[in-house]
Write a protein that binds this DNA or RNA. Structure first.
Length: 343
DNA sequence: ACACAGATTGCCT
DNA sequence: GGCAATCTGTGTC
């Protein structure tokens, strides 16, 4: 029998669920069924924790051999990763950043995954390269990956691997991974063990020349002249924004957005009118059909209504939202989406 | 704007 | 060994 730990953390401190009298660990393998659920109260802070107890159900000799092999491999790896240890060890700096002094602070990130995904919309992602180049873009599309029961998440069932480790780090930590062998995707960890927000699209604001150059590097040279990308095509996808912003695993993974000088998020000070929550389109996530209909269809993707930099627009949901807005008077002072750029 | 095929390699089983 | 939180180029409407 093995125990998998999926601790959740309270809002206001670094406390996490303590597993009493049980040697709990999370590790590489989770090819098992699970049972869950215990809530605990500690130090006057409400803490929601769950222990997944997993058992191997193999019976034949062949299956036993497979199991023994997996155990052997695990022992050989001698790498026992623990969600609590990862979380605590990611709080190692009190360092004050030199750049981006008006960046968003810890409290902005330390919220449930869906709140962070929506909260990031309209904010500005800033990248500062080692040569001083500064790139900026409005965040216009995000997706939630919840961990736990979320089959599409790299941290499904509390699975911890060397790759998914940053998902367990403190809210505001970057998780950059390589997909399809050649592209990068950029996530930000949120509150909740293993939960993170994928940034899917940006509307470029500053450094467009650099972005054009970065995107051009990937293009194959064909006989016909390569056509210039439009501004709204530079960052209209999770891997595209990583290319344009030079976000790679080797450069940007496991970084603290509240402290690192290379990357941060800030409020859009030029936008005096606040983003109206009514103008956030909620739709299903992209590229996860293989996990099954239940989780592929969950409304965990959020984007700014009518924005042309969004990677995949859900016209049906947009139409519904427009109808709602038309019949509401509360949105008349809002910035979005009356601006012609958003039509 | 949309649909489809092919690319390419790290990660997980 | 097989898959993948995607992109590009080409073709069609």
């Amino acid at each position: 029998m093995e125990l998998y730990c999926q601790s959740h953390f309270c809002n206001c401190c670094l406390s996490s669920t303590k597993m009493q009298n049980v040697n709990v660990r999370s590790d590489y393998f989770s090819n098992t069924a699970s049972a869950s659920g215990s809530n605990t109260k500690m130090n006057n802070h409400q803490i929601c924790g769950s222990v997944h107890i997993t058992e191997n159900v193999m019976s034949s000799d062949e299956q036993s051999q497979t199991y023994n092999k997996s155990v052997h491999k695990r022992v050989k790896l001698s790498k026992v990763l623990n969600a609590d240890d990862i979380f605590f060890s990611s709080h190692n700096s009190n360092r004050t950043p030199t750049y981006g002094l008006n960046r968003l602070k810890d409290s902005f990130y330390d919220v449930p995954c869906e709140d962070l995904a929506k909260g990031l919309l309209g904010k500005i992602l800033v990248r500062r390269l080692s040569d001083g180049t500064v790139l900026k873009g409005h965040i216009v599309e995000t997706e939630c990956y919840l961990g736990g029961d979320d089959k599409a998440s790299h941290s499904y069932k509390g699975r911890i691997t060397e790759r998914s480790k940053p998902m367990y780090m403190k809210p505001g930590t970057t998780y950059v991974y390589i997909t399809y062998g050649m592209y990068h995707c950029f996530n930000i960890s949120s509150q909740g063990s293993g939960a993170a927000v994928l940034l899917r699209a940006l509307e470029p604001l500053e450094g467009l020349e650099f972005m054009h150059l970065e995107r051009g590097k990937r293009k194959k040279s064909t006989s016909s002249k390569p056509k210039e990308l439009k501004a709204h095509e530079l960052c209209s996808g999770p891997a595209k924004l990583c290319m344009s912003f030079n976000i790679t695993k080797s450069l940007c993974n496991e970084q603290d957005l509240t402290a690192w000088d290379g990357l941060w998020v800030e409020e859009d000070e030029s936008n005096q009118k606040s983003l109206d929550p009514c103008h956030i389109v909620t739709s299903h996530r992209i590229g996860i059909d293989s996990v099954g209909r239940e989780w592929a269809s969950k409304p965990l993707r959020f984007y700014l209504l009518g924005n042309s930099s969004v990677s995949r627009r859900d016209r049906a949901r947009e139409k519904e939202l427009w109808e709602t807005i038309k019949h509401s008077s509360s949105t008349k002072d809002s910035f979005f989406p009356q601006d012609p750029a958003y039509e």
